[in-house]
Computed example of a mutant assay.
Amino acid sequence: MAKQNQQDNLIGQSNALLEVLEHVSQIAPLSKPVLIIGERGTGKELIAERIHFLSTRWDQSFIKLNCSSLSDSLLESELFGHETGAFTGAKARHEGRFERADGGTLFLDELANTSGLIQEKLLRVIEYGEYERVGGNRSLKTDVRLICAANEDLPSFADAGEFRADLLDRLAFDVITLPPLRCRPEDIMSLAEYFAIGMARQLRLEYFAGFSASSKQILLDHQWPGNIRELKNVVERAVYRNQQRDKPIQDITLDPFDSPFRPKQSIRTQDRRPSKAAVTNDTSSISAANGANAATTNAAQLSFPLDFKTHCEQQEKALLEQALTLGQFNQKKTAELLSLSYHQLRGILKKYNLLDKD
């Protein structure tokens, strides 16, 4: 399966892809940490697999974990393991990913979503090759090559205090940045034909009749925000929907949700999230409050010279406190009110020591 997936990602002859593969070949033999940066769907996990199988650890374990799929406590246990009785439900000792990957490679995806605690423990493993199981008091040694991936600009996160700069320094022995599919236009049809043939085999068709000129143009003109993963879905959907199996594909559906009957907002969404009106009212309240504050500031006679940085920080902190109040101190809702991601908001709250607000 790993070889199959690698082939999926390695199809193409664009200069952008060939440069990445050359970079991978150079770094693979070393047992140094590697950081892979790229948009969703560009094949970060597949590049990590290629690094592993081209390394001297190719015959050892390749263990992977998506850091965004688990809570902090579960992620800590999955990474470092836990002892019997470490927490409620821990009825037996659990081997973490570092223990299982000993001698091989550990791939951590979505690294930007990890907490400060996890980042601190990762730093210790990289620096000293040591860790402790959750609930344990004995240091364990590990020999693991760490490959991490993110679809965020980690240096900007570090500058904003949302990611440990010292951990980023350790991980970034070398950084491989993957090109999005829109920067590899000459590879689009090669990938599309590969995925189409694979889908034809799944459907037990005798052959794949190809793409029409118009369908090719649609594929080439699209910007592919979901990259290779999106292309694969679009092509496979087109193959199975094609009723004239012996003729080239004419119809390409880029957005499967596109329908004149598509509901604007489902009942379930209304139950789980604040209504549009509520969010609009909250946002309007913030805007009105900001306007009032701005008017007050403009009307007041500021004393110059002033400390520009301190003045801006005071204004920013006041806005955060106002948004937290309107969001009922729910950080996810507060982030939505400020048009920030959850992790961006937490980084800013940490900067002003507002994380412990009730």
Rank of each mutant, 00 (worst) to 15 (best):
S190P: 01
A238S: 09
F53I: 10
Q244M: 10
L65E: 08
G85D: 06
F261T: 05
E110T: 09
L205V: 03
R184L: 09
D187C: 11
T84V: 09
D159E: 14
S68P: 09
P185E: 08
K309A: 15
R182M: 07
M189V: 12
F87Y: 15
G96Q: 06
K264L: 13
T88I: 08
K32Q: 14
L219M: 12
K32L: 14
W224P: 01
T269Y: 10
E78W: 10
Q315S: 12
A165P: 00
F157C: 06
L338D: 01
R262C: 02
R145K: 10
D282T: 04
T42F: 05
G226P: 03
G327D: 05
Q7K: 15
E236V: 04
E313C: 13
I11S: 07
N298A: 13
E162W: 01
F107Y: 12
P256I: 04
D187T: 11
A294H: 14
T269I: 05
E39Q: 14
I228F: 04
R50I: 01
V34L: 07
L65N: 05
I63C: 07
T334A: 09
F87S: 05
C183Q: 12
S339N: 14
R124N: 08
I36F: 04
R229L: 04
A300T: 13
Q119W: 05
D258V: 04
E193L: 12
G226D: 05
L320H: 07
E45P: 00
S339M: 08
L108C: 04
G103R: 04
E22V: 01
L345P: 02
F163K: 02
D258E: 14
G43F: 02
I11V: 15
L220D: 11
E316I: 14
I348G: 01
F261E: 09
D221M: 07
L340N: 04
Q301T: 13
K350S: 14
Q7D: 13
A101I: 07
E78A: 13
A213K: 15
L10W: 11
L167W: 02
F107Q: 01
M1V: 13
Q344K: 12
P225A: 02
E316P: 08
N293M: 12
I188E: 01
K44N: 05
R97Q: 13
L171H: 02
K332C: 06
L18C: 06
E316F: 11
K44S: 04
D143A: 10
T269G: 00
H23I: 00
V134F: 05
N137P: 02
A213F: 12
D258N: 10
L106V: 03
K247T: 11
Q7N: 15
